[in-house]
Every structure is written in C-alpha cells, then in structure tokens.
Design a protein around this nucleic acid. Structure first.
Lengths: 196, 196
DNA sequence: GCTGAAATGTTGTTTAAACAACATTTCTAA
DNA sequence: TTAGAAATGTTGTTTAAACAACATTTCAGC
C-alpha cells in the first residue's frame, strides 16, 4: 500500500488517530497507552494503524510535530523577519508551549520530554533558519553564508528551547517577561555582529 | 455495493454527511443546498454520497429521524409507561423541539416542514405505541388489542405534533405550560376510558 | 522459572471510498 | 430562444480501510 498522503481517507485516518492520541495523553501516561486503546477510540482498525505508523512512538512524533507547527504558525506573523522582536516573541511562545504541554500532559510530560525534544527543536530550528533567510534575501548566496545561518539557527533553537524548558521545569519562579529580559540580550549579543 | 451498516467506514461517512448537512442548514435554505456543498464540507466524494442516499431529500429524512430520535431518548425516561405524566412530558418535549428547530433552521424551517413532518410523527407514533404496549404487558394480546393501541398512538401523535407545531408557529402567545394545561385534559379524556 | 493472557506486529482477502469520466437535467444570462 | 455553465446522477476502476487469522513478544501472577 503506497499511501498517497493527500487522499481524503488517509488524511481522515491520520487525523482520527492523532485526535484519539491527544485525548488519551490527557488521561494516561504514555507508557500505559496501547495501540489498541488508540485505535479503539479512533474507531480505526488496528491493522490500519500499522499501515500508517510503525508504532506509537511514530504517532507521537507525528502528533507533536503537527501540533507544534500549528502552534507556531498561529502565533507567528508570517511577515516576520529575524530581529530582536521576533526572537523575543519566539521565546515567549516557547515558554507558553512548555506551560501548556506540562499541564495538558500531566501524566506524561516527564516521560515524553526526551522523545519529543529533538522534534521540537528541529522544527524551531527550521523556523529560525527561514527567518534568517528572509532577512538576507537580496544578498548573494554562497554556500558559506547558508552554513553560517544554519549554525546560528541551531544555536538559537537549542538555547531558546532550553531556556524555556528549564524555566518551566524549575517551577516558573520568575515571570516569562523577566526571563526574556535576562536572556534575550545574551542571545542577541551572540549573533548581533554576525547578521547586521 | 451492499453497504453493511455496521461497518465503521459506513457509519463514519453517514455521520460526516449528516454533520455537514446540519451545519449547512443553519446558513442556507434547504433548496439552495447542493449535493456538492454537502459532500465538500463533509470531505466525502460525491459519488459516495449517492452510494448512501438517493438525493438530498433522503439525507434530510435520515438526519431528521436520527436527531429527533436522539432528542426523544435524551429527554424520555426509559422506564416511562403510558400515563398522564409521560404524555405531558412528550407534549413539552415537542414544544421545545419545534422551538429549537425553528430557531436552528431559520433559513429552512418553513420549506422543511412538509417534508419532515411525516417522519417526526411516525417516530412519535412509535414511541407512544411502545409506551402503551409496556402498560399492557401482562394482558393477553389479541390482534384487536394491538390494533386499538395503534389507533390510539396515531391519534395522539398527530394531535400532539399538531398542537406543538401550531403553538410555535402562531408565535407562542401562551407559555408551554398553559398549552399543556389546556390540551392534555382533552387528550387524556379521549383515551381515558379505553386504556384504564 | 513457568504459564496464560494481553499487546504487538504481520498478512491475505473483502469491501467501501475515492476518483475520473460521462450522459442528463436544470439554470442563467445574453 | 439558445448556448453554456452548473448541478445531478451513473459507472468502472483504483486504492485504502476493515477484518480475521496468525505468529511473536511482553508481562503479571503463581
């Protein structure tokens, strides 16, 4: 079966599985959720599950990537360019995201973290990279330039993710705004000269 | 295609079509709703629509019957027997139903009425018949008895439907409770001696 | 450790949904 | 009135979902 991912049936099935999973993750720890649970709630045959995902980890990846992408899109202005404002916004978004996730997945937040971390950062890295690209549209594009932007977006995505995660995990002892005012100068200092 | 109606795919498709239709009926008059509109909103192929329903009228029937049945089930105690209390309750339910329907289908209420009327009454008739049956469980069942109960439920369903419809359509100049106190005595008088 | 039950994957077959293409009817506006 | 656009039905083919049956792994309780 060479599942065309634009077939309405395929999209529906994936959506049903994703919805079912998001609903289950509110109630149970990830490790206690079985494939059977997921497919039953989704009213999808178990064999169909395996036609789409290797196992529940792959569905987790899919779900996390999707919802996080939506989350970003919703709160990011599509005309945004890389600057202090947009990076500040992203840090704020990441703070909220961790806050939301940890409350929405009470049962699983800790066990999920190591699994989803890389996906989130990857997505974040991508967004930042594209912000950087847009800011440099007119300049000629040597491979070296691209590499530099890649490096910057890697560093930024990890540091922003890490800052927000640590803030949330340590109990949010300061406000998100305080965190931002402490963190952003350092971040922007680091890349300031490179991209001006 | 001999559509087994307990296949999850079949149930899902019908539900999607029904939901799409209920949503469209809020916005548009029934006559302005095309089969294409329905299937597009439901993300179901148009040909699939015709595998389930002959035309939009059949979907209307299906939807009305379904939602009305749910509406009744929700507000009717399953232990109810035929008596003044349960019939009063049914009249009240029918008043609410007409009130709801006329507000929810502003665009179509008048054009829908003649089409759905028979389905609603049929359903109502069924419910009342079963209430009557339960009340007479122990007595021996001659065909003549059944016929009498049939006749009673026909009369009651039409009169109750008619009373509620007229009340709603004339602008609800009295409260539902007033309507009930005026109507129920007459209704119960008519059948009173027959079923005691 | 051993056993049986539950969960996980896998496979072949059947069935319903998607799709494209077509003929027919109904509307609409020039 | 008439041309063409849109909506309605219909059909044959392709594809994905459902299903049942199976082997394999995991795991809890004895």
């Amino acid at each position: 079966m060479t599942t065309k991912k634009n077939d309405p049936r395929v999209m529906r099935t994936r959506q049903l599985l994703q919805d079912s999973f998001t609903s289950l993750i509110r109630e149970k720890d990830f490790k206690d959720i079985t494939v059977r649970d997921i497919t039953e709630k989704a009213t999808v045959n178990r064999a169909t599950f395996y036609a789409h995902f290797a196992d529940k980890y792959e569905l987790l990846d899919f779900t996390i990537t999707n919802t996080f992408r939506d989350y970003l899109r919703q709160r990011l202005n599509c005309h945004d360019v890389f600057n202090q404002e947009s990076i500040t916004n992203i840090l704020l978004i990441m703070c909220d995201y961790h806050k939301d996730l940890s409350s929405r997945c009470q049962r699983s937040y800790q066990s999920l973290r190591p699994i989803i971390e890389s996906k989130i950062i990857e997505e974040l890295q991508n967004v930042i990279f594209h912000l950087l690209l847009k800011g440099n549209k007119n300049t000629s594009f040597l491979d070296d330039d691209r590499e530099l932007l890649k490096t910057i977006s890697t560093l930024l995505s990890w540091s922003i993710y890490g800052a927000a995660y640590t803030w949330n995990n340590d109990g949010r002892k300061i406000s998100a705004e305080e965190l931002i005012s402490k963190t952003i100068p350092i971040i922007m200092n680091g890349v300031g000269k490179l991209i001006s």
